[in-house]
Design a protein around this nucleic acid. Structure first.
Length: 131
RNA sequence: ACGGCAAGCGAGCUCAUCGCCUCGCAAUAGCGAGGAGGAAAGUCCGGGCAGCAUAGAGUACCGUACUUCUUAACUAGAAGUCUUUUUGUGAAAAAAGGAGAAAGUGCAACAGAAAAUAUACCGUCCUGAGGUUUUGGGAUAAGGGUGAAAAGGUGAGGUAAGAGCUCACCGGUUUUAAUGUGAAUUAAAACGCAUUGUAAACCUUACGUGCUGAAAGGUCAAAUAGGUCUUGCUUUUAAGAGUUACUCGCUCGUGCAAGAUGGGUGGACCGUUGGAUCCCAAGAGUGAUUUUGGGACUAGAUAAAUGAUGAGACAGUGCUGAGAUUCAUCUCUGCAUGGUACAAAACCCGGCUUAUUUGCUUGCUAUUUUA
RNA sequence: GGUUCCGUGGCCGAGUGGCUAGGCAGAGGUCUGCAAAACCUUUUACGGCGGUUCGAAUCCGUCCGGAACCU
């Protein structure tokens, strides 16, 4: 699947591409390196994986009290990632990534698009100096 | 026609592209079906279900409190009853409350003479001394003043002045009778009737209640330490442990050997969505609700699924123009805006509370006009 | 998901129905040649709403905000 999906652009974002193992999440938040960009915080951890990369999207309850708002933000981010997966470079080994939304204000889809395109182009995955 | 009050219903639709979750067919390509709410929320109550505990009795804690009924159950609901308050011209409606204060204890600040076994500051009246405004004794509680609250209210008689002291009316308490399943209502008689408020203060009476929550709990491969249970032998007699708040009562008790059971794992699966379910019809009941018959299957995720983009129709809103008219508004055309409020299932139900936009329907009713 | 607790001036905190203590901070003054310290004076509060009561920070209900625990 991985070879064919990378050769032509695919727009899926199924369960196998998401990060849902509790143990891996603990490891990512413990050992991963993070940086902030405007509304977002990204946490990365290089790790050999079968599927290349696993991504987690989260909105903390501290800033957004209503579940409706949290669902809305997560859906916007997920939609953008689904359509622009090829922007993110795929390394040889694989990595875990968490995208957190840390701004207290509600974003529009335009803001998400502009900020995340810049963010994904800057991702320092290919540089080995992260870890 | 336009307002007011109350109750109820609905909450986006269609198409295309790219995607998410579950199930079925298939076999990992794909096809088909389904996919958030009236409050899913708050977690304020009550249950189902599950596990643990449990010889028994009593007490405490906690909860409830007008009556009758409904329900699996309830701080829920229905119908009634009494009191208080509020709104309204009206029709009427809404809200709150209800065992016991004469079982007992406590509290009632300040003010006031006195704050609960009544009392006497200013007063009123009688009287002694004194002699022209002072004082002693007695009677009284009508008036003043204080306060949230002052010991039935009004009027008349009565008196030295007064007072339920006596009488009439009103209020209150008790008893009896009638009606009602009952709360209670009505009527009569008696009692001259000091004994306030607070139980969302302690408390008394009656009734009820074991504890913990699905992150409960169960199943699954291999290996074994400790623990637990059973059996056998042995030691000890009083500290301790258990009985999931306490007391009584009851049970166990130390070490060794054998046998059985089997912890943990951020894992997987079950629990997990067919249920006190929903809809329709007929019957019972004032009603909540219930009986019978028929039909339907309607989310099941687990760092947690419904989205993005484009187009269209139809509500609504604003502006311009035209027409009608009861001069408030209505209809039509064009343009712009445009799906908007509160808000996301997490084992499942019944309620309560809170948040909330717009439209529609029904009932009652004020005002105006016409017949 | 469940359970429990807490909201008192700018900050910390006492308060068993009857005028909301105290400390720090702020402002003004006294003292000093000028400051500090000390002393005096003063400003600002019971999370919101409703109820019980003559009277509520306290008692009851509800909403809002915050924290901790189970894991």
């Amino acid at each position: 699947m991985s070879v064919s999906a990378l050769s032509k652009p695919s727009y899926t974002f199924s369960k196998s591409e998401r990060l849902h193992s509790k143990r891996k999440i603990e490891e990512l938040f413990k050992k991963g390196s993070s940086f902030n960009f405007k509304f977002f915080r990204v946490i990365l951890l290089l790790q050999p994986l079968a599927l290349g990369k696993e991504v987690l999207i989260s909105v903390p309850k501290k800033r957004h009290k209503l579940a409706v708002d949290r669902n809305r933000i997560k859906r916007l981010i997920r939609e953008f990632y689904r359509q622009n997966k090829q922007l993110v470079a795929s390394p040889s080994n694989g990595y875990l990534m968490a995208i957190l939304y840390i701004s207290p204000q509600m974003p529009t889809y335009e803001e998400v698009v502009t900020q995340l395109t810049v963010l994904f182009n800057r991702l320092p995955i290919d540089k080995a100096s992260i870890i």
